[in-house]
Write a protein that binds this DNA or RNA. Structure first.
Lengths: 226, 226
DNA sequence: CCTGTAAATGAATATTCTTCAATTTTAGTG
DNA sequence: CACTAAAATTGAAGAATATTCATTTACAGG
């Protein structure tokens, strides 16, 4: 049956076209921002007529949503892959932070569309974008839970607060770094962030912990003697 | 000389009109957001013709900038006043946090215009809005420096990182609270935020204290024996 | 009261999103 | 291969809205 073949080819062609439109939109939106980007320009870059874009996407917002969805999808994948490669909760968290910050800084014009587009307040939960966002932060949640089990995080602070602090600090930090302190490097920020949020695993602390271990051993021996 | 009188009256009238336009814009922008708000609607609400708005403001962005500027101006004043009323660095910081969060949550549609409008990358430093933003965060900086002098903050983390974490966590937290956990209260978030950022009593510290207790007890008994 | 300047107006213009009637392409069929 | 119905595409027209500007109105100073 060649019909299936042909159908598949056709579908593929459509998907390619959709891909091309999203890719053109992504590039232009990230360069100019939402309001300065015109549908005509996107259509031209994708090699289609103005009206064609509206066959694939309901309107400009919907297209921007698709761009954001693709962004989150890729972001989650590279984040998870990178986390899996590292060993040790702190190393995983630091990777996640560096990864997030560099992506935010490279794509801030894409990300700044989020509140603009998605803050509908009604339809947000249940939306594709919401689910993709959940999937992304879940990468953090798993690592943070693991770190908690290992005793690296004081149990006083709820996970969702830590999560908001983790991502909020970085989103804000990325913005000030872009605007003002362009030359400061990401690593410094990330190290400070992680050590503030998660039980300060600095060298000095490790040494202090060792000292405490030794003192406990001494206490044990002295108590035996007494 | 009645001329001065009359001139003053006229100038006052103009300033009142400018005020009226800003106030109408503020109300409508905070209700509908930037893109859904039309200049015609603002003009109507302010009781002027469409063209009149453009005598006072170059364009829609410029008007939105004026609204943001007024917002930051008021925000800084109420923040400083509130801080002055409290005593103790932690109380001041908690007030500042609660104050910030409630204002953000009440005015998020105004605030979400910030990246839209001001992320010019070139003209930002030196702009009015930048100066007002600096003035606002300076309120935090003064309190944090004081807290640092009092030993409430570990000196490891630079002030600018703490500042980004402070405001970033809240901006992000406010958004998730608006979108998802509407019923959770601000105080819980703020308490967790402050205790994570400032003067955290970690598990390791508790353990250290326990060991000291044991050793002191042992020392007492040894002294008795000798 | 008169006059020149500043302020205000709103109809006209310009830009850009979105729709849709007409056209082209494609898949399936005899 | 020719034909047909459905799907996809086109680009010009329509609609919404920001912005301009020629004209009118209000006012301060004489």
């Amino acid at each position: 049956m060649p019909s299936r073949q042909k159908t598949k080819t056709r579908r593929e062609k459509l998907e390619n076209r959709e891909e091309a439109i999203i890719e053109s939109a992504r590039a232009i939106l990230n360069e100019k921002g939402f309001s300065k980007t015109t549908m005509a320009e996107i259509a031209r870059a994708a090699g289609v007529a103005d009206g064609t874009v509206y066959i694939y996407f309901k309107n400009k917002e919907d297209l921007a949503r698709a761009v954001l969805a693709q962004f989150y999808d890729k972001l989650t994948e590279t984040a998870q892959t990178g986390v899996d490669k590292r060993s040790g909760s702190i190393a995983k968290l630091k990777f996640l932070a560096r990864h997030h910050m560099s992506r935010v800084m490279d794509n801030w014009r894409i990300l700044e569309m989020l509140p603009l587009i998605d803050m509908k307040m009604d339809s947000y939960e249940g939306s594709d974008l919401y689910k993709l966002n959940r999937a992304y932060v879940a990468v953090f949640d798993r690592v943070a839970e693991r770190a908690h089990e290992e005793g690296l995080i004081g149990s006083g602070t709820p996970l969702w607060v830590l999560r908001d602090m983790f991502f909020g600090s970085m989103d804000y930090g990325a913005r000030t770094m872009l605007l003002i302190r362009q030359d400061d490097n990401i690593n410094w920020f990330v190290d400070n962030l992680i050590s503030t949020l998660f039980g300060r695993v600095e060298p000095s602390d490790k040494r202090r912990a060792d000292v405490v271990d030794r003192l406990e051993a001494i206490a044990d021996r002295l108590e035996d003697k007494l």
